[in-house]
Amino acid sequence: MRKSFETEIQQLKDELVVLGNLVEQQLLGAVEAFRTRDIAASKKIIEIDEDVNSKRYHIEEQVLITIATQQPMARDLRLLASILEIAGELERMGDYAKGIAKINIRMGDEELLTPLVNIPIMAKKCVSMLDRAVIAFVNENIDEANVLPTLDDEIDNLYNLVYTNLMGMIGNDEKTIQRANWILWVAHNLERVADRVTNICERTIFTVTGELKEIRSSDQ
């Protein structure tokens, strides 16, 4: 029954995974370019963002066509609404990667205030959470969707570590404050990515159970 519809749904899920992978590459690339102060690489990250946007629009368009032509109900309808939402979340994560790239460009010749240690770890953890969240969504795996938001605490802890370290370094020197601020922005962007991973997990649970609820990580 409804074979062509099933195929359309599968294609949409595939496209979502591709978009997720692209954003993951973008995030890792943005942090690596920042760590190595590679301006050319940061410019490439900004270019990738256009690809991310157009993939998101394409998914939106396909979802609307599917809704209009197949008139889905119940779980199918929730799934399609969730795909729309998640495509939007992924695009915003891409914007965070672009934000990190812009910071690197804005820094110009300035050296990093301190070599990056915790931020690349944050980036790796964020990307791993993101990857698992997207896969959990396409597999409609609510156990995984319930577990992933608890990992957000690790990201928050790393962010706090970055923050405390930077605060210990800055004095009254305006220049130093600015250089610390750049690094803090990058960490902040990653922290936001992790929060949005939780939103994806919420959509997975909604798709499967029909229940819309906010998942809170344990520290909240």
């Binding site: 029954m1 409804r2 519809f5 889905p72 109900m73 119940a74 779980r75 199918d76 309808l77 929730r78 029909g210």
Partner: peptide, 17 residues
């Protein structure tokens, strides 16, 4: 039509009956 409780309703409204 958005959150049916019965699996048979779900199957019917999603065209999998």
């Amino acid at each position: 039509f958005t959150r049916p409780k019965d699996k048979r309703t779900e199957d019917y409204v999603t065209g999998r009956f």
